[in-house]
Amino acid sequence: MSSSSPFPSLPVCQITIPSNDLINAAYFYTKEHTSEATVNHCLRCAAFSLLFIREFPPLASAPIDLEAVVLSSLMHDMGWSTTKSLLSTDKRFEVDGANIARDFISRNAAESGKWDAHRIQLLWDAIALHTTPSIAQHKQPEVVAVALGILADFLGPNLPLPGNPITVERYKEIVGAFPRAGFSDELVDTLCGLCRDKPQTTFENFVSGFGKTYGLDGKGGGKEEWIKTCEDNEITKRLMGGLQACKQWDD
Rank of each mutant, 00 (worst) to 15 (best):
M1T: 06
S2H: 09
S5M: 07
I23N: 01
A25G: 05
Y27A: 00
Y27V: 01
Y29P: 01
T30G: 08
L43D: 03
F56W: 08
P57T: 07
P57H: 09
P57F: 04
A60Q: 06
A60E: 09
I64F: 09
L66T: 13
V70P: 08
S72D: 08
S72G: 05
L74P: 01
G79V: 02
S81H: 08
S81E: 11
S81K: 06
T89L: 10
F93H: 13
G97D: 04
A98H: 00
A101E: 01
A101V: 03
D103R: 07
F104R: 11
N108V: 03
A109F: 03
A110G: 09
E111Q: 15
R119S: 13
Q121D: 15
L122S: 05
H130Y: 03
I135A: 11
I135M: 07
I135Q: 08
P141T: 02
V146G: 04
G149N: 01
I150D: 14
L151S: 13
A152N: 05
A152E: 02
I166H: 02
A177I: 06
L187C: 12
T190Y: 05
G193R: 04
L194H: 12
K198T: 04
P199H: 06
Q200E: 14
K212Q: 15
Y214V: 07
G218F: 06
K219Q: 15
G220I: 06
K237E: 13
L239T: 04
G241H: 02
Q244K: 05
Q244F: 12
D250L: 14
D251Y: 10
